[in-house]
Simulated scan of single mutants.
Amino acid sequence: MKVSVVIPLYNAEPFIGRCLDSILNQTHSDIEIILVDDVSKDASLSIAEDYQKKYSSIKIIKHSTNKGSMMSRRDGYMAATGKCLMFVDSDDALPLDAVEKLVSKQVETNADIVLGNAVKIYVNGRRERLVDNVRANAKKLDFLKALLDEKARRCLWGRLYRTSLFHDHELRNLENMTIYEDACLLYQVAVNAERIEPIDDFVYDYYENKASVTQRVYGKKQIESIIMANSIISEFCQPFTQISYDLQHRVAKTVFALYSEDISIEEVKKLLKKHGMQKYGEFTTACKILKLADWWFLLKRFVYVRTKLSK
Rank of each mutant, 00 (worst) to 15 (best):
Q238G: 02
S90N: 14
G219R: 08
L144E: 00
T163H: 05
I58Y: 04
A146K: 00
R195D: 00
F302V: 10
T163S: 15
Y204V: 04
N209D: 15
F143R: 00
H275I: 09
L24R: 02
E170A: 11
A211C: 04
I226Q: 10
G17M: 05
T65H: 12
R172T: 14
E235R: 01
Y161N: 11
V251T: 12
N230L: 01
E13D: 11
E197M: 05
D200V: 01
N230S: 07
L9T: 14
G76F: 06
I289R: 04
I199L: 10
D21V: 07
N11P: 04
V119D: 14
K120M: 12
F202Y: 14
D132G: 13
Q52H: 05
D30G: 02
E175W: 01
D92M: 04
K140T: 13
L292A: 10
L165F: 11
L102A: 02
V268M: 08
I226L: 12
L160I: 13
M71S: 04
L94W: 03
S225I: 13
I226W: 05
K83E: 15
L160G: 03
D42L: 03
K308M: 06
S310Y: 11
R129I: 07
Q188C: 08
R172A: 10
A229G: 14
M1Q: 07
Q222F: 01
E128K: 07
D294P: 14
L141Q: 00
F143H: 09
E235K: 03
V217F: 03
E267V: 09
N25R: 08
I121F: 06
Y122W: 05
T163E: 12
S44I: 13
Q242K: 14
H167C: 07
A118K: 15
G125M: 06
L186I: 08
E100H: 09
I179N: 03
K62A: 08
R18K: 11
R74G: 01
A190Q: 05
L165K: 13
K279S: 11
G281D: 15
S46N: 15
I47C: 04
V103Q: 06
S29H: 08
N230D: 15
M78L: 09
I263D: 06
A43C: 09
I60A: 10
Q215D: 15
M177W: 00
V114G: 00
L271P: 05
V114P: 00
T109R: 03
G68C: 13
Y206Q: 06
C287Q: 08
V99N: 02
M78N: 09
K120V: 07
C237W: 03
N192K: 02
N110E: 14
V255Q: 04
D30L: 03
V303P: 08
L258G: 06
V303E: 05
D37Q: 10
A257E: 15
K139C: 06
D182R: 08
M277P: 15
R301K: 13
E224I: 13
V114F: 00
K140N: 14
D294H: 03
I47F: 03
N133R: 04
Y187L: 05
Q188R: 14
E267F: 02
T65M: 07
A193L: 10
K288A: 14
L272I: 06
W157F: 11
Y55I: 07
I227V: 14
E261F: 02
A136N: 14
L160W: 02
R195E: 00
T284N: 12
I58R: 01
G276I: 11
K53T: 12
Q278M: 07
M277I: 10
A48S: 13
E224R: 12
D168Y: 02
V213R: 09
T254A: 03
A80D: 10
